[in-house]
Simulated assay, not measured.
Amino acid sequence: MTEAERATFRDVAAVGEFRALFAAQLASVAGDQLARVAVSILVFSRTQSPAWAAAAYALTFLPDLVSGPLLAWLADRYPRRSVMVAADLARTVLVAAMALPGTPLPVVAALLTGVQLLNAPWAAARAALLPQVLPGDRFAVGMAVFTITTQTAQVVGFAAGGLAVAGLTPHGALWLDAGSFLVSALVVRFGVKHRATPHHERSRTPWLSGIAVVWRDRRLTALIALGCVSGFAIAGEAVVTPYAAEIGGGAVAVGFLLAAYAIGNVIGVTALTRFPPVRRRGLLVPLAVLSCAPLTLCVSNPGVPATMVLWAFSGAASAYNLTASTLFVQSVPDALRARTFGVAITGLRVSQGAGVLAAGLAAEYLAPHIVVAIAGALGMLAALGAGWWWHKATRQPAR
Rank of each mutant, 00 (worst) to 15 (best):
A316N: 11
N265C: 13
Q352P: 08
I263M: 12
V343P: 03
C298K: 05
V289G: 00
A324K: 10
P286V: 05
T323N: 06
L348P: 03
V285R: 06
R337M: 05
G353H: 12
V304P: 13
G353R: 10
G353Y: 12
L287M: 09
A271F: 13
L283C: 02
I370N: 04
R274G: 12
A316F: 08
Y365P: 03
N301E: 15
L357N: 02
S351E: 02
V299K: 03
A271I: 10
V285C: 10
L348M: 14
V371C: 01
L290F: 00
N301A: 15
T307Q: 06
G355F: 03
S351W: 03
A338W: 02
T346E: 05
G355Y: 02
S300P: 10
W311R: 08
Q352C: 12
S351M: 03
T323A: 12
A293I: 08
L348Y: 11
V299D: 04
A358L: 13
V371M: 01
M308A: 15
T270L: 11
M308W: 07
L357A: 14
A359E: 09
E364C: 07
T270F: 13
V289W: 05
T273V: 04
A316R: 07
V332W: 10
A344P: 02
V278C: 05
A293C: 04
L297A: 08
Y365Q: 10
D334L: 10
A293H: 01
T270M: 09
T346G: 01
A262E: 13
S325Y: 06
R339L: 11
L295R: 12
P286E: 04
S291N: 09
A344T: 07
R280I: 05
L310H: 11
C298L: 15
H369W: 15
G353D: 13
V350N: 13
L284I: 06
A317V: 01
S300L: 15
V289D: 00
L295Q: 14
P294R: 07
V329F: 02
V266Y: 07
L290K: 00
L366G: 13
Y261D: 11
F275E: 05
V289A: 01
P302W: 08
A363W: 05
L272A: 00
G360H: 14
P294L: 07
S300A: 15
E364A: 07
S314W: 04
P294W: 10
G376S: 00
S325P: 01
P294N: 09
P305E: 13
A377H: 01
L287T: 09
R281E: 10
A373W: 01
L327W: 10
R339F: 11
F341Y: 13
L297D: 02
V309S: 14
A288W: 06
A293Y: 02
N265Y: 09
Q330D: 14
Y365I: 14
A367C: 12
P276G: 15
I345T: 15
A262P: 12
A312F: 08
R337Q: 09
L378A: 01
T307Y: 04
L336N: 09
A354V: 15
I263A: 15
V289K: 00
G342N: 06
I345G: 09
A288N: 05
P276H: 15
I345S: 14
L366N: 12
W311K: 14
L272W: 00
G315M: 05
N265T: 11
Y320M: 02
R280E: 03
